[in-house]
């Protein structure tokens, strides 16, 4: 092990190390801790210039409830609700159950982010498990070429796609809709996801497929019953990664959407910024809310997340 394990060092150095750890962590996360503290300070602290003192009183609840707005049960607001989950005229609806909602647009942005991220993850998992299967199991002449097309496409700068993709989305009548954004994200992330799935499938024991073929099992059944069950850990790792990438996307949200009815939270927070200019307590509460879902995803699925990110870092 390198560096030399700390247990073999002198006790003095061991204690120093134990003390250094939290100190280094606080330094490292200082900007974030500052924002967390901001979100608990009352507005008055900022107007009086006390940015970096402890909160004069704990205002966390009022700040976060301003961000989340007020909610009231309603029945008629969701009468014409076509989708299981929707925002209808400022009412949040689950089937016919609804809550009248009054407050900042932050909640709508969060809702949009969820409705963009989840379908994208499902779409990418579906497409890339298939492309990965095709490229990982079968040997045909253009295999490597198609694989490299996916890999290369995944690295291109977004700007080279921007004008045509925006045009295409406009032509399909999907500009400023969540669907337009979802379709593009699925297509683009399939590049990365194919790289991921194909390499994982390559590492599976090929004898399984051969044994299934000897049994005369149809190829699509091999996909569904033999390969797919083995892909579960890889799909989980990929799903959390894609979730984070899409949740955090800003560029495409700005290019393909505008306004609270379809913008995700990353783009929305900038309008929120304009709405609450220099209201640091609300902005920081909003930022923390916006950052929370990927952070929770990371902590819940840490093993998968890191396995996904470090794919290929070890031979």
């Amino acid at each position: 092990m390198f560096p030399r394990p700390i247990e073999k060092a002198s006790p003095a150095w061991q204690y120093t190390y134990q003390g250094l750890l939290p100190l280094a962590l606080i330094m490292w996360l200082l900007p974030l801790l500052a924002v967390a503290m901001f979100s608990m300070k009352p507005d008055a602290d900022f107007t009086s210039g006390n940015y970096w003192t402890l909160p004069s009183y704990f205002a966390g609840f009022e700040n976060y409830s301003t961000v989340f707005g007020t909610w009231q049960r309603t029945l008629d607001g969701c009468a014409d609700n076509a989708w299981p989950l929707a925002f209808n005229n400022d009412a949040f609806c689950i089937f016919r159950f609804g809550w009248d909602y009054d407050g900042s647009d932050m909640v709508r942005y969060m809702f949009n982010s969820i409705m963009i991220t989840i379908p994208t993850v499902i779409g990418v998992v579906a497409l890339s498990s298939m492309t990965g299967f095709a490229l990982g199991i079968y040997k045909f002449r253009s295999n490597l070429l198609i694989f490299f097309m996916f890999v290369a496409g995944n690295f291109v700068p977004f700007q080279i796609l921007m004008v045509p993709v925006r045009d295409l989305t406009l032509d399909m009548g999907l500009y400023n809709t969540k669907t337009g954004l979802v379709l593009f994200h699925i297509a683009f992330q399939t590049g990365f996801a194919t790289l991921f799935m194909r390499n994982f499938i390559r590492a599976l024991p090929f004898e399984l497929v051969e044994a299934a073929r000897v049994e005369g099992i149809a190829e699509w059944r091999i996909y569904w019953f033999v390969v797919l069950p083995l892909l579960k850990p890889a799909l989980a790792a990929m799903a959390v990664l894609i979730f984070t990438f899409i949740w955090n996307d800003f560029f495409w949200a700005v290019v393909l959407t505008q306004g609270a009815e379809s913008q995700p939270v990353t783009a929305g927070i900038t309008s929120f910024n304009a709405q609450y200019r220099a209201a640091y307590h609300l902005m920081s509460a909003g930022s923390i809310v916006a950052a929370l879902p990927p952070v929770m995803m990371f902590f819940l699925m840490q093993k998968h997340f890191i396995a996904g990110l470090t794919l290929g870092a070890v031979k």
């Binding site: 497409l127 890339s128 298939m130 492309t131 299967f133 095709a134 490229l135 199991i137 079968y138 045909f140 295999n143 198609i146 097309m149 996916f150 496409g153 291109v156 080279i160 796609l161 921007m162 004008v163 045509p164 993709v165 295409l168 379709l183 593009f184 699925i186 297509a187 683009f188 399939t190 590049g191 194919t194 190829e219 699509w220 996909y223």
Partner: peptide, 27 residues
Amino acid sequence: IALTPWLFLLPGVLFFAVYVVFPILQS
């Protein structure tokens, strides 16, 4: 065995071509 990979590739390649490959050429 020769056809299956193409059937499995079709949706992915189609999406990728429409949203990534062609836009590069169009740009």
